[in-house]
Design a protein around this nucleic acid. Sequence first.
DNA 1: CCATGATCATTA
DNA 2: TAATGATCATGG
Length: 214
Amino acid sequence: MKIVTRTTAINNLKKYLGKDLRKLALEYGITTYETGKQNKGWKGLILERLAGLENNVSKAPNGLSYELKSVSFHKIKDKLKPKETMAITMINQEELKKHGFFESHCWAKLKSIVFCAVMWHGKNSESGELLKVASLDFAEDDELIKEIKADYDFIREKLKNHGFDALTGKDGKWIQARTKGTGGINPRTKKRRPITRAFYARTGLVKKIFEIAS
DNA sequence: CCATGATCATTA
DNA sequence: TAATGATCATGG
């Protein structure tokens, strides 16, 4: 197990700025979509590799104390905007009820993060250049964090008062509780898989993070 | 099996 | 285009 500090990870990633990630994924033996299947997570995986992290897909600690995330960007009227929201972490009902924002995984992941902006080239992402690498640390008294905490608290209260089913992606100004899961039908039980949710950073938050990190 | 990596699909 | 909900491959 190699030790990779955040600075090292960033420096490693910066070497690949402007490179085509798909080519690199091929070199690293990461499946993209050419098998006829779609691995939607390949960009994240290759970035973790490039950063020097040895973990591929595992639980929360993909770095030492930081998170490596990638977001696809696209151009709208000549301006680069985040195309999608960004998954932060799964929501665990019990933990959400028990822990406040600053004890949550959500905060743990959000507060120390390495972002990678990747250009989006349409469906299947045949190519994708690494646009930018940025790191960011949040402080507990940041105005933005206070607002994010408010969203977290709102979602938490809603879970307590109305139950897990009452949650929707509409909630929250900066973060939301969207559905996230394997989806489809469980081939063994033939039943619908249970709905799970995760915290997502809305595009507005993604944009803000990049502005701060710039 | 399920959380993690995220993107895809649909609707307005 | 933007927003929300649904979905996929992977590896421990």
